[in-house]
């Protein structure tokens, strides 16, 4: 986690670009959908990586706890995440080189 710095504000999961990772801050979903999303392990504090978009741009597939889950934009708009900084200036963590 040292390699990442949380951005200050939580943003919708749908704003996370392909290839980037976020940490779930909160869910603004209701009812059954909320339960289902939680049951898949998307509880606050969980890492979510944006994998790819459908050819038409929606839905989007995310990597969650070792599984791949596709969600529509309407849902991901309602999931708040902290995007992890892993931009080009800070290269991805290399095992054995941490300080």
């Amino acid at each position: 986690m040292d390699h990442f710095t949380k951005t200050q504000k939580a943003i919708p999961l749908s704003d996370i670009p392909v290839g980037a990772t976020g940490v779930i801050a909160s869910l603004n979903l209701n009812g059954l959908l909320r339960r289902r999303v939680l049951d898949l392990g998307m509880v606050p504090g969980t890492f979510v990586e944006c994998l790819r978009q459908s050819p038409s741009g929606d839905p989007t597939a995310y990597r969650v706890r070792g599984t791949t889950i596709a969600l529509r934009r309407e849902s991901t708009d309602q999931i708040a995440v902290y995007q992890l900084k892993m931009g080009p200036e800070t290269s991805p963590p290399v095992p054995g080189k941490e300080g």
């Binding site: 049951d39 898949l40 392990g41 969650v64 706890r65 070792g66 599984t67």
Partner: peptide
């Protein structure tokens, strides 16, 4: 085996 965490739920 490859997604044990989710399965353990």
């Amino acid at each position: 085996a490859s997604s044990l965490e989710r399965n353990l739920n």
